[in-house]
Amino acid sequence: MTWNSRKDWMAVLAKADPARLAALMPDLPAHSFLRSPEVGAVMVQARAGGTGAPFNLGEMTVTRCSVQLTDGPVGHAWVQGRDARHSTHAAIMDALMHTPQAAALGSGVLDVLHREAQAARQARTEKAAATKVDFFTLVRGEDA
């Protein structure tokens, strides 16, 4: 898969397992923080009736951070949870996607994360599918 959209790769990084992301990025480039990892809350909104007027459902924890690599590129991350390393890795990865290393990291990190997330989701979908009810009619009332 080619990674052209920042929106796409940031989503993959945010949803990645922090330990898995760290394992895929063993060597971090030199960087400084424009915004040190900061834990906060995001208010999750939903809609009445699924599609109607918005209401506040409750908050979720989130960690954000912004880094600058020594050679210039800036990276941002907003990730669910309270893991400072997760946000740092994601922000560095975001910055690196603006460098010539983007193609290599796309296949070496993002593809792997994306594939694993897809597989996990597929497994859940298939477990759900196994619990789908097949109705069959025994006797119709009007025939009795």
Partner: peptide, 23 residues
């Protein structure tokens, strides 16, 4: 604990129609 967290943003309303359903 929640009261100690800065509120960083509000989300877009979640799309429950696009839910990956378990049930």
């Amino acid at each position: 604990y929640r009261t100690t967290l800065p509120r960083l943003a509000s989300s877009h309303p979640v799309d429950t129609g696009a839910m990956a359903v378990d049930r």
